[in-house]
């Protein structure tokens, strides 16, 4: 068990294994994305009240899910680094922070686009939107903090602590924002009709959620691989890798 754990913690092992799985994951992601998008945009029925504009949920909802899940991925990676001092975990965390921030921004952005035809305005101080905004702030804090340190190990520890503090605070923040919203705006607007959705609308959404989870995993792995190469650039195995890649490039260019 422990040998397996430590082998998993080896950046080199991760790089080589993920390299084998990567093409399959990429194909799966692409297939799911194409199916989900076509199904959602072309075949799902139009919404009775919102018309075609509701179709943005096929991006908005999966992205919102991942924005929150991504924070936990980041925090767990940070905790693993903090407790077991596994460098790979810190690399995953480094890769997850900007990715999560981008997804959160995308969730806010698609929400704003959706809001314009639905409520006639891009921005509403709604509980979910506000929570999403706070989540974006939490992500930005981690990203900015990491970039401020000159020492990488220290940056990793500091960011891990911040992410963990953020994690235990997220439920409190979300609940307080919910409370605040019901206080100021008695529930007149119901944001999304997700639970009462028609199955024909819901099935493509499920496909899209699955597609975005795969997409998240794919991008996270790619980012982590880049981070591994960058940090391990002085090691022998990365140099060997670079030499062999170079040889392949030369070979193919010679053939042409």
């Amino acid at each position: 068990m422990w040998r397996w754990f430590h082998r998993l913690g080896s950046p080199r092992w991760f790089y080589q294994t993920s390299g084998r799985w990567l093409p399959w994951l990429a194909v799966l992601t692409l297939a799911l994305l194409v199916i989900g998008t076509l199904w959602g945009l072309a075949f799902a029925p139009e919404d009775a009240r919102q018309g075609n504009s509701f179709r943005i949920i096929y991006i908005h909802v999966p992205v919102s899910f991942l924005a929150l899940a991504g924070y936990y991925v980041m925090a767990v990676a940070g905790a693993v680094n903090l407790i077991w001092r596994i460098k790979l975990a810190d690399m995953v965390m480094t890769a997850a922070a900007p990715l999560g921030a981008a997804l959160t921004f995308l969730a806010l952005f698609t929400g704003a686009i959706w809001g314009k035809p639905t409520w006639g305005t891009y921005w509403v101080w709604d509980a979910r939107i506000t929570s999403m905004l706070v989540l974006l702030f939490l992500y930005l804090g981690v990203v900015v903090l990491r970039n401020s340190f000159s020492g990488r190990d220290t940056a990793g520890k500091a960011c891990a602590i911040l992410a963990l503090v953020g994690t235990v605070n997220i439920p409190i923040i979300y609940k307080s924002v919910d409370w605040w919203f019901t206080l100021h705006q008695p529930a007149t607007i119901k944001l999304s009709g997700a639970p009462s959705m028609h199955p024909d609308m819901f099935k493509p959404l499920l496909v899209m959620i699955l597609a975005y989870y795969c997409f998240y995993a794919l991008v996270l792995i790619l980012n982590t691989r880049t981070e591994i190469l960058h940090r391990e650039r002085r090691t022998a195995w990365v140099n060997d890798l670079a030499v062999s890649e170079l040889a392949v490039t030369e070979l193919t260019s010679n053939e042409q």
Binding site: L138, G166, N169, I173, S176, V177, W180
Partner: peptide, 17 residues
């Protein structure tokens, strides 16, 4: 400035209540 950025989200519940 960094300090403000990283702790501000934690202040939301306090301000709300």
């Amino acid at each position: 400035v960094l300090l403000s950025l990283i702790v501000m989200p934690l202040y939301f519940p306090v301000l709300i209540f």
